[in-house]
Amino acid sequence: MPLYLCNATAGAISDDAKEKIAADITRIHCAVTDAPPIFVHAFFREDAAEMPLNGKTVFLMGSIRAGRNDEQKSRIVTEIRQSIHDHAAIPPDDIVVMIRDTPASWVMEGGDIMPEPGEEAEWLAAHEAQKPAEHA
């Protein structure tokens, strides 16, 4: 978490573009939130019925940990839309990007409940410290 799940019309985003957009999503999310890159998942689908395009070419839903402010979310949306436009040559008006909050306490990653925003460094340190014990 976060999970950025992108649906697009078939062929609209090439594999090469997906790689570049995923790199941008990771960079943007981490720059805006200070989250570590290892938390960031970006998955791409095509013509997925569960994510209606409603006449658009791309619909991307970002599920992020609750606690980010509106300015942060707005920046994420704007910069991801720009990345998709830049790498897939899709007009911005055909790209919908939305952000949805999920409480960190609802999510487990690496066997631990996700940290609240701002507590990532302590979480990572504790998570890494557990690993030798797990394998002992």
Binding site: P37, H41, E46
Partner: peptide, 22 residues
């Protein structure tokens, strides 16, 4: 259960090919 397979080359974690399940 809604079982969704992410196509090869379409899943990334930390900007690298993903092996994650959600």
């Amino acid at each position: 259960i809604n079982w969704i397979e992410i196509d090869k080359g379409s899943g990334f974690t930390a900007a690298k090919p993903s092996t994650s399940s959600i």
